[in-house]
Computed example of a mutant assay.
Amino acid sequence: MTELAPLPSSLEAVLAAHGRLVDWSKARPLAIEAAADAMAPATKAAIVADLKCYLRWCMLQRPIATAVPATPETLVLYLRWLSRSTDTRAAAKPATLARRLASIARVHRILGYGDTEALPTQAGMVRDTLKGIRRKVGTRQRQAAPLRYGQAMSSADIEPEGLTIESLLAACGDDLVGLRDAALCSMAYDAGLRVSELVAAKVEDLRLLADRSGRLEIRRSKTDQEGEGSVVWLSAETMRRLSLWLSASAIADGAVFRRINILTLKGADDGETILRHHVGSNGLTRQGVVSILRSRATKAIADGHAAIEPGQDPVAALSAHSFRVGLTQDLFAAGEDGAGIALALRWSSPTTALGYARELAAGSNAAARVIGRVRS
């Protein structure tokens, strides 16, 4: 029997669609297939998006620029275009530019370039261009708005204002949707889950302990692409909320958090509106999690559970990463060190964890503690 060739990956499909911009002479099919298999889904999606942006730009050049292999001059012009672009898909933040450049370098290597010669992305003029853009616009990235629990974590801490986990939970009702959303917010905060970890959570990964707390097994994460797995702690309150949600939804296995379709029916006699909830079989998407978060935040403000100053729009600043940032800040406010926080939340380094607590650190560093006693 003839062995069928594997279907092309999204990366191959994008490259093939722009064949005249790409020199395939050094490419080896097995190398492309192996590279696609080795990438995490999020990494592959980012590289494909970056490649599309780069190829679109190359197509607009006159004469048309060769995308792979690129010349350093082509990359310099591309970076300059990105830094001035008003296209939201081509954001001009230095971190975004660096990522797009790294994606171009990765594609070059996949297609066989860089083994015996320097990559164009490593050229001095390309590095200097990126450095110049960083100097002009700064390198600090916008951070997701934190969702702290809602209480002071130590005597030196100040009770958080605005949107908090407590305010979101207060905005969740006792209906099926409310039970799901409360369980989701509670678990995402307790474990400082990345959105990929949250949507991948399965009933089989949960375990209830004798003290009513729980454990969640994370089979794979951003910093664990080999799938060694890790186990995280969940509070008794979170386990209670998970139990209410799973019992009401009759979910016994598979994805913990799922989409709920609501059907509106009219009664035959008195015209009364009847709501029917249908729980899907597939897990929520990343977009679904963000939609739930912002919906509950909007309701929390409307119901008076969160006081917001006029003119502010805190909902727009929220992302699925807000749970993780909020927990990091709460642990820091409680006096935990960066190494312990990084271990608990599976950060790649204490530096990363402390970066999310920069504002809190200003009020609890050595100067604040010592001089604060003298000048209070």
Rank of each mutant, 00 (worst) to 15 (best):
M59A: 06
V315N: 03
L198F: 09
R212I: 00
L97H: 07
L176Y: 06
L179T: 01
G173R: 09
T43K: 12
T2N: 10
L7E: 14
D303G: 04
S221Q: 00
A366C: 01
G138K: 13
D128N: 15
Q287D: 14
P6I: 00
L327T: 02
H305L: 08
A34T: 13
G271E: 09
I260P: 01
L163H: 04
T264V: 11
S186F: 03
D23L: 03
A156W: 05
G304Y: 15
R134W: 05
G335I: 00
R207M: 09
D181Y: 10
R294K: 13
E217V: 07
A339V: 11
K136L: 11
G280T: 11
V14Q: 14
A34N: 13
P6Y: 05
A317C: 07
Q122N: 13
A36W: 06
L7G: 12
E226R: 11
G326H: 04
R148P: 07
L354C: 03
K131Y: 04
R194D: 02
L331F: 04
G280H: 10
E336Y: 09
R148V: 08
A31C: 10
D23R: 06
A38P: 05
E159Q: 14
D115N: 15
A171C: 06
D253G: 08
G338A: 04
S85C: 04
P29D: 05
A156D: 12
P310L: 01
D313Y: 03
R286E: 15
A357T: 05
L119G: 10
E204L: 02
Q329H: 07
E3S: 05
K93A: 15
I218P: 00
E197D: 13
L284G: 06
K299A: 09
V279D: 01
K136Y: 11
K44S: 14
R135S: 13
S10C: 01
P120W: 00
R259Y: 12
R373K: 15
M153W: 03
T328L: 06
G311H: 11
S10E: 07
L101G: 03
P314S: 08
A91T: 11
R276E: 15
G283E: 10
A40W: 02
